[in-house]
Simulated assay, not measured.
Amino acid sequence: MSSGESNALDTIRRIDSLARRHDVSYQGCTVRWREWGQGPPLVLLHGGHGSWHHWIRNIEALSATHSVWVPDMPGFGDSQDLVGDRHDAQRQARLVDTLAGNLDTLLGAQTLIDLAGFSFGGLTAGQLAARRGGVTRMALLGPAGHGGTRRQKTALVNWRLNDAVARRAALRNNLQSFLLHEPGSVDALALAIHETAALATRYRSKDFSHSTALTSALQNLSMPLLMLWGEHDVTAHPVEAAQRLSDERPERGWCIMPGAGHWVQYERHQDVNQLLGRWLSPA
């Protein structure tokens, strides 16, 4: 194991060791939640082929002012998969119901939360806000489900390989072509996170991510909304998607982060942490 790989695992273990773990069962599915910090609750939802690790560079900063709650969503990471047919068209609705039921158990049905979601987690955050209510502010980072055009030019390669070296090479290629922009951002920590999450993913999010489901979910929501894309995000034309989702409503703001790809809160974590810190401040 290289020193970079060792340091990456140490980083993950250190932040994980600070978490308070909660296993919550709802309709036959047990979901692992991690909690950091104290203060008003902030729920963070990861992307497809992801886990709580998608927020690895943000948790410590955000937990300085909030109790940060991050699940491995059903079918991801340390959580169980949903029961039933994996191709059920209602599977995403059941995932959202599970998260809503979990939050009622963990925090209480009347507890107000702030909510942020990345990629597929952005779509899920919008649906969760519509389903549960009680969301004070919401931030969507590179959200899926916008229904607009995408600008991915390089096809993803098959990473489901038995040879570990070949698998990591494929995952590194996919990180560079889909998630991150700068070659230097594809570091040992990003690769460790991506490989661990990909191997643990059992939920097929792609069909939902390519839909217009987020647009539909936002129609009747009126809380303040912040949307953020990396300048080079391949999952959207950011300005086009922002204009569509903001719909000229004054409570909806958006910005483009220079020099970043899709996984914007990893690649530009310091800037994103400052931005979210200001957005989530009661002042």
Rank of each mutant, 00 (worst) to 15 (best):
P41G: 04
H210Q: 14
E231Y: 04
T30D: 01
G48P: 06
Q274W: 11
T149E: 15
G122I: 04
Q110N: 09
W279I: 11
G75Y: 14
Y26L: 02
L225K: 09
S177C: 14
L106M: 13
P282C: 03
L42D: 08
W159P: 11
L214N: 03
V186E: 04
D23F: 02
L280W: 15
Y203K: 02
H269W: 15
A170G: 10
R137S: 02
G230Y: 13
E35H: 11
Q265S: 14
W55G: 09
R14G: 00
T124S: 12
E5V: 07
T215L: 13
L191F: 07
A170C: 03
T98N: 14
Y266F: 15
S2A: 07
R132Q: 03
A188L: 08
L245A: 07
L161H: 08
A260Y: 15
E231Q: 13
F76Q: 06
V264N: 08
R151D: 05
L189T: 11
L245Q: 10
R168M: 03
Q110T: 09
P40Y: 06
P74L: 09
T149S: 15
R268I: 00
M138N: 06
A169T: 05
R167P: 00
G50D: 12
R204S: 09
S51V: 05
R244Q: 13
H87Y: 04
D78Q: 08
H87D: 14
L171N: 04
R137M: 03
R32E: 06
V157Y: 13
A129S: 09
L180F: 14
A217Y: 08
M73P: 00
M257L: 07
I12N: 01
A139K: 04
M223F: 10
D23A: 13
R249C: 00
L199I: 13
A166C: 02
D23L: 13
E5C: 00
Q110D: 08
G126Y: 06
Q90Y: 01
D233F: 09
G134L: 06
Q92D: 03
L199A: 13
R278F: 08
H87C: 02
I256N: 11
C29G: 09
V31A: 07
S17E: 12
